[in-house]
Nucleic acid binder design. Structure first.
Length: 446
RNA sequence: CGGGCUAUAGCGCAGUCUGGUAGCGCGUUCGUCUGGGGGACGAGAGGUCGCAGGUUCAAGUCCUGCUAGCCCGACCA
């Protein structure tokens, strides 16, 4: 993409309403604009990152054997009356009346709807296990939306639901989600620590939340520093293998890690003192096993081999996709702007033309640009007629992890400059070598 | 939902106390010079001062009501 033909309205100054880094930077980098309290438009740059995260979530869900679908944002109130949550959910649920006077609502989550779909289509144990998920906009009418997309009213969430005949099978689904979520966050360049959680209004017995450590996090967390060293890495996982998933679950949940909601002073004090850590964290996902809570309420049962009807065991699992962008920026920025992890960057590399209009420099930039595109990469070429400082400042702000700087001085020696946004380290090399280097960096990361 | 604050050009702000031609910086448009970290000079464009009433010869400024947004607390992907 050529910047001169893109839509990237960057702001030089901090908007007054933005208090935390991710909110400020998303506004300044032209990713979002507020439409009303807690509701945002996603401008091209923000939309691009959102789609990248969605893709990662999809890939990892499918890898774990879960099946994508799509449910509507608007739901009928009837189902929610049936589960009893129409009253329980309170004012956070946006209620709407259609022209016929029917009560509708903008879905804050989808347990009822998915269970309804399930009960109407599945009657036999033979069709289980089954895990369905979708990525859809949700609406929760927060009393006080804040921090940009971190606590919006409208937000994009991946929510999934598993249906199993037995508790054991459902707990395997729980573990499978634990593993696939860990992988998902790692691919995004995030460390999200699973912590024992409250089950909240969704209810149930087992729940873990995934927290990204950040000073601006809304939750207070306590953990054993040993969890920081845990990495799933690129190990091959067989998601159908119960023991393997259980082992990974144990590995990641054995060290003490809890939020203030479930914090247990005695257990925490059992951790060696030098490893006891407390910090703040951003919640970027949560998994639940809630047994037959919804299948009982909504009468979702399957027939077993011996002819009995049994309510299915269920769980639900969510990742706040739009919130993740905020969390990634909170964890990856400096005073100049964002620093995207390579797995989620909106463009792979920026090209800065230091002397727009100079025929040799323009030609070198074009060569780089086309060479990178030919390698399957997406460069962002700043071809505006701006001075070097302005271009550098824009690039730093939007945070592409790599920058190629092209100017007459370097070209005189036959080189361009490749700079790492995070470290600031630069290296000079020929155009061909630069194309090759950048492609190498992104092997396995696009 | 309790407490505090704000609303003036695309963004950041002054002007309101003490009513009298709506301003500054950045951005933006045109031109010239410039060209390796937000450059210089010159000339422009851009505002029903959040909305509705009221007081007054006259309201951005005073009064009343409303709306929207932000911050702190109680709640949540």
């Amino acid at each position: 993409m050529r910047l001169s033909q893109y839509f990237l309205p960057v702001l030089k100054e901090n908007p007054a309403e933005a208090q935390i880094a991710s909110h400020r930077l998303m506004l300044r980098a032209g990713m979002i604009r507020q439409s009303s309290a807690g509701i945002y438009s996603w401008l091209p740059m923000g939309f691009k990152v959102l789609r990248k995260l969605e893709n990662i979530v999809h890939e990892e869900q499918v890898r774990a054997g879960h099946i994508p679908m799509l449910m509507p944002t608007l739901q009928s109130a009837d189902l929610w009356r049936e589960s009893g949550r129409y009253e329980d959910y309170g004012k956070e649920m946006l209620r709407i009346t259609d022209r016929h006077g029917r009560d509708m609502l903008y879905g804050p989550t989808n347990e009822e709807l998915i269970t309804d779909i399930f009960r109407n289509a599945v009657g036999s144990y033979k069709e289980l296990p089954l895990t369905l998920y979708h990525i859809q906009w949700k609406f929760r009418d927060e009393v006080r939306p804040r921090f940009g997309v971190m606590r919006g009213r409208e937000f994009l969430m991946k929510d999934g639901y598993n249906f199993d005949v037995t508790k054991e099978a459902a707990l395997h689904a729980y573990n499978r989600h634990m593993v696939s979520y860990l992988r998902t966050y790692e691919r995004m360049g995030l460390q999200a620590i699973p912590m024992r959680a409250d089950t909240g209004p969704i209810g149930g017995d087992y729940s873990h939340e995934f927290l990204v450590l950040a000073e601006t996090g809304e939750s207070e967390v306590f953990y054993d520093r040993a969890v920081i060293d845990l990495k799933l890495g690129d190990r091959e996982v067989d998601f159908s293998n119960v023991d393997e998933c259980q082992d990974i679950f144990d590995e990641f949940t054995n060290p003490y890690a809890r939020t203030d909601e479930t914090h247990d002073e005695a257990a925490y004090n059992a951790v060696p003192e030098e490893r006891r850590m407390s910090a703040r964290g951003i919640e970027v996902g949560q998994i639940f096993y809630f047994g037959t809570k919804y299948s009982d309420a909504l009468n979702a049962a399957v027939q077993t081999p011996d002819g009995k009807q049994v309510p299915v065991h269920m769980g639900s699992h969510g990742i706040g996709v739009s919130r993740l962008i905020g969390a990634i920026i909170e964890a990856n920025h400096d005073d100049k702007g964002i620093i995207w992890p390579e797995g989620v960057t909106p463009f792979h590399v920026g090209i800065v033309n230091l002397k727009q209009g100079d025929s040799a420099t323009d030609a070198a930039c074009d060569q780089l640009y086309h060479g990178l595109v030919a390698q399957g990469l997406e460069p962002l070429y700043d071809d505006r007629d701006e001075r070097a400082g302005t271009k550098f400042a824009s690039m730093d702000l939007i945070g592409l992890p790599w920058r190629l700087t092209v100017g007459p001085r370097g070209l005189g020696n036959g080189v361009v400059e490749l700079t790492n946004r995070r470290t600031g380290d630069s290296e000079e090399m020929s155009i061909e070598a630069a194309i090759d280097r950048v492609s190498q960096i992104y092997v396995g990361k696009t």
